[in-house]
Amino acid sequence: MPLDYKRFNGPEDSVSYKRFTADYLKSYDELHSELIDETGHRKDGRAMDEARPMYVRGNFVSQAKGSSYIEMRGTKVVCSVFDPREIVHQNEFSTVGLLFCEVKFAPFACKRQRQSHVPDSEEKALSVALRKAVGPTVCCQLFANFQIDIFVYIIESDGSCLAAAITAAGLALANAAVPMFDVVTASSVAIIGDKIFIDPTEDEEHLAMISPDTNTNHGVITMARLNGLMQIADFRQIGSLDIECILKVTDILEQECQKVFPKIQKTLVGYVKNGIMEQKRLSEEGKAREAKLKDKMLEWRSSIVNNSV
């Protein structure tokens, strides 16, 4: 870890104690057999095509214009969006708005090792991926020469981090009332051999990135979808997959993205409803107070008139 002078640093040679545990170096077959049990269910009890239950919430950060929190069991992601501000380090006028995305992992987010505070290449790649996925949805021409900041923080990572980050960013942007074409949702899939794991956990993703000795399929695919327009905003694949597998998985991913969409819709509509009711209540209270003041005013006027008479 390079020395960071603005923070307290530990000793340079510190290593995670997990390296010395008995089960650190497992063979590929051992890891594979751990993932699926005899009944065809995964380690956490799900079926192969079952996604984790998702908890979605907006208005999570009181200081941000719009924010969201998404939790899928082990993966916890916070996103906040701020008001448009001027583009830094730019001299010429830009006819479209810019999006500035930053994805960061908490130092304690990954169970394998501690992340450093300095952004590494993986975090930078995720930031670029997030911007590419969210870019098509935002009406950039409506805030020319401004930039909107989207910050995503991954508190705990247990697989499907990019998918959760994209969905959280979409919800936070809508919560912040940024003009958008559509709501973006994302999901990801891990493929090991002929088995397709929907919404993979970190162990499943880790194994899917390693190739077995034979030439079988393995890989992870993440897809972001614009649900109203039915278009694919971002598609990324890593690993080694043949064409039929990819085409089959594209269909599965579209359905998964479609399944997430109603939850986001419900959350947003709920907040709008609450906002309208709150406004109604405040305006009624305001009117009641005004009516009381008016009565007092009339009383005072009439008392003056009486006194002067």
Partner: peptide
């Protein structure tokens, strides 16, 4: 969040 490591 607390992470444990070993060092000299």
């Amino acid at each position: 969040g607390i992470k444990l490591e070993l060092a000299r």
